[in-house]
């Protein structure tokens, strides 16, 4: 096998994730793009197992990254739903951090 194929795939997926995070306005779509970036890093780690030939180290880190992604999605969706409950919007352009516009 040629390891450059999954490496380039991971790089392109990471670029797509960056594009999605910067492009999207809806917070849920931003989270989806973040998932794409995390998966690209996972693919990188698993492929590094093959090329470096010290087995299962990258796989272990990929499992850790999956756990981190699960925690991130849980907290992120809680924040999004709470924000929607307070402001009835999920557009991250409209989020003001000074807290002056309550309601």
């Amino acid at each position: 096998m040629h390891a450059v194929i999954p490496y380039v795939t991971a790089a392109l997926l990471f670029g797509l994730g960056v594009y999605g995070v910067l492009r999207r306005r809806n917070a849920i779509l931003v989270l989806m793009a973040v998932e794409l970036m995390l998966n690209a890093v996972n693919l990188l780690l698993v492929t590094a197992d093959v090329t470096r030939n010290d087995a299962y180290r990258g796989g272990a880190f990929a499992l850790f990254v999956i756990v981190l992604a699960a925690a991130e999605v849980g907290v992120g969706l809680a924040i999004i739903l709470q924000y929607y409950r307070m402001r009835a919007a999920v557009h991250i352009d409209d989020v003001r951090l000074d807290g002056e516009n309550a309601g």
Partner: peptide, 17 residues
């Protein structure tokens, strides 16, 4: 987004290649 995302993706891909 296109500039930054495309730059990151294609730059990393060129690096790996």
């Amino acid at each position: 987004a296109l500039i930054v995302g495309g730059g990151v993706g294609l730059g990393l891909a060129a690096l790996f290649v």
